[in-house]
């Protein structure tokens, strides 16, 4: 009996220790990135454009927003229709086909998307390294996130509301646009923010589709675009301190942006859940 109690106590202690260690590891990663960035920060890094290993990050910051913003627009357009189809039109077979597609797309490795985007968008469709090629490749990976969160958001709308709308003579499209999309909006936005936060941190899809630009892109195609994750990758492997400093500051900017987006997303979600 004593032995069993002892083992139980040991297990509890071990579990607590491991949980604490995990918390510490996370704090360590975050602290390391932010502290490292603070040590190496120079104001010109945010105010000037640069070449990933020299100059500033302004072009990369703008590029990251352009790429993830355009990718969000493209993928939202498709994902909303997938979610509407699953929620209102699809029977069991089409519904499970669409769900399987979404789940499968979520499991495709980032670099496979990168390879596909390079071969198809950059070479065969002749877009070159560009904003459009990068955003299209990024949007492939975003579709599953958006489709899933939009579907959940519409499923979260009270059934009574939908039934009431139909009882008042609303058409199916009116129900979708004025009830499901309207009342599901907070959760749809929360999902979109989460999606952008994931997309902004991606690299492998963009290495061979977006390229790099020491300035800003001038058009959607044939004009390369810089982004923050590239700076992290390119800078940290340099032997000199300044590029490494750029990599740290770019990391801190990315993590900061992602944390803010994630917090807003969770806040919206929490508010909806409390209301329901």
């Amino acid at each position: 009996m004593g032995m069993r109690r002892l083992r139980d106590a040991l297990m509890g202690a071990a579990g607590l220790a491991i949980s604490a260690l995990l918390l510490a590891a996370l704090l360590l990663v975050l602290a390391y990135v932010f502290y490292g960035a603070a040590l190496r920060f120079e104001p010109e890094m945010l105010l000037t454009m640069g070449n990933a290993t020299s100059g500033g990050l302004l072009n990369a910051i703008v590029g990251t927003w352009l790429l993830s913003g355009l990718a969000l627009a493209i993928s939202a357009l498709l994902a909303i229709f997938v979610a509407i189809d699953i929620a209102q039109y699809a029977g069991a077979r089409v519904g499970s086909l669409l769900r399987a597609t979404v789940d499968t797309m979520a499991a495709i490795p980032a670099m496979v998307y990168g390879l596909f985007g390079f071969l198809v968008f950059v070479i065969y469709l002749g877009m070159g390294y560009s904003l459009l090629a990068g955003s299209l490749t990024l949007s492939l990976m975003m579709i599953p996130y958006l489709a899933r969160s939009t579907e959940t958001a519409m499923g979260n709308v009270p059934k009574e509301l939908v039934a009431a709308a139909y009882a008042l003579g609303a058409s199916r499209w009116q129900v979708i646009s004025r009830v499901l999309l309207r009342f599901g909006r907070p959760l749809i936005i929360s999902g979109a923010l989460l999606t952008v936060s994931i997309g902004a941190g991606e690299t492998a899809q963009l290495l061979y589709t977006a390229g790099w630009n020491p300035g800003l892109p001038t058009w959607f195609t044939h004009s390369q675009v810089g982004y923050l994750t590239y700076v992290v990758w390119a800078g940290i492997n340099q032997p000199t301190p300044y590029p490494q400093g750029l990599a740290f500051v770019a990391s801190a900017l990315l993590v900061g942006m992602i944390l803010v987006l994630l917090l807003i997303s969770k806040w919206l979600e929490g508010r909806e859940v409390r209301r329901a």
């Binding site: 918390l23 936060s197 990315l254 993590v255 944390l259």
Partner: peptide, 30 residues
């Protein structure tokens, strides 16, 4: 074994773990 508060703190930090970009893990690794 754990009080609810502790397990929620670990849960929230796991969510952050999942959201940190791959290149930042790479930087930390290097």
């Amino acid at each position: 074994h754990t009080p609810r508060l502790m397990s929620r703190a670990v849960g929230a930090s796991m969510q952050l773990f999942a959201a940190i970009p791959s290149v930042v893990y790479g930087l930390w690794g290097i």
